[in-house]
């Protein structure tokens, strides 16, 4: 699925049947289902390149994001579409003394991803009896710690801060974690880590 199609999907999501009460406190706030930002991402198991969109709440402390990533054939049997949903919680934002820069020193997050690719052989299905392999070869669950730094560039039309933020995620996934946990030192923790990077843009 291409990114514009994904974005349209969200923009075209039907309004809930109950009317949304007007948010009188913040008149410029878009309806809740309109995404708050865009992001571009690489690695961390989410594709060579991924783009996504998401929603931030609680003064940007909590972000829920969906991404569509791509892994070309060079790295696979057939090209892979990696579709990821992730949630990131970054409790603290520190301003840098009167500058437009800010830092979120800690972020904790989790993700679920699905890898769509004809060449990725399924670990379940008609070839096997139930439970022949216990894991899914296409769905991964992972967790990460991270941080971000960014700056603001004035205000959007809605009156919120227009900003660009770079972030990193140091994490792992379910299969790596199982491999680590079922050994007593034979597999160092660093060997199961993955590193991902991205940029979040709040531009509207």
């Amino acid at each position: 699925m291409s990114f514009p199609a994904l974005l349209l999907l969200h923009l075209a999501a039907p309004a809930p049947s109950a009317p949304v009460p007007a948010d009188t406190a913040r008149p410029d706030r878009a309806r809740w289902y309109v995404p708050t930002h865009l992001l571009a991402h690489t690695a961390g198991g989410q594709g060579l390149a991924a783009v996504g969109t998401g929603w931030t709440v609680s003064r940007d402390r909590l972000a829920l994001e969906v991404l569509a990533g791509y892994l070309p054939k060079k790295f696979s049997i057939t090209p892979v579409g990696v579709f990821t949903a992730k949630v990131t919680y970054a409790p603290w934002q520190l301003g840098l003394g009167g500058t437009p820069w800010h830092v979120r020193p800690l972020a904790l997050g989790g993700f679920v991803s699905y890898s769509a690719s004809r060449g990725i052989s399924l670990s379940r299905g008609s070839k096997y009896e139930e439970g022949y392999y216990w894991w899914s070869s296409r769905t991964r669950v992972g967790a990460f710690v991270g941080g971000s730094a960014g700056r603001t560039f004035g205000l959007t039309k809605r009156g919120t801060a227009r900003s660009a933020t770079a972030y990193y995620e140091l994490g792992t996934n379910d299969l790596y974690l199982v491999s680590w946990m079922t050994n007593k030192g034979g597999l160092p923790l660093r060997s199961i880590l993955t590193l991902g990077f991205g940029v979040r843009l709040h531009i509207w």
Binding site: G45, S76, V82, I120, L193, T194, L195
Partner: peptide, 14 residues
């Protein structure tokens, strides 16, 4: 891609 930390997908074959 020469560094294991940077991984596009656990399924990458490279």
């Amino acid at each position: 891609t020469g560094c294991d930390l940077i991984e596009f997908s656990p399924n990458q074959t490279h």
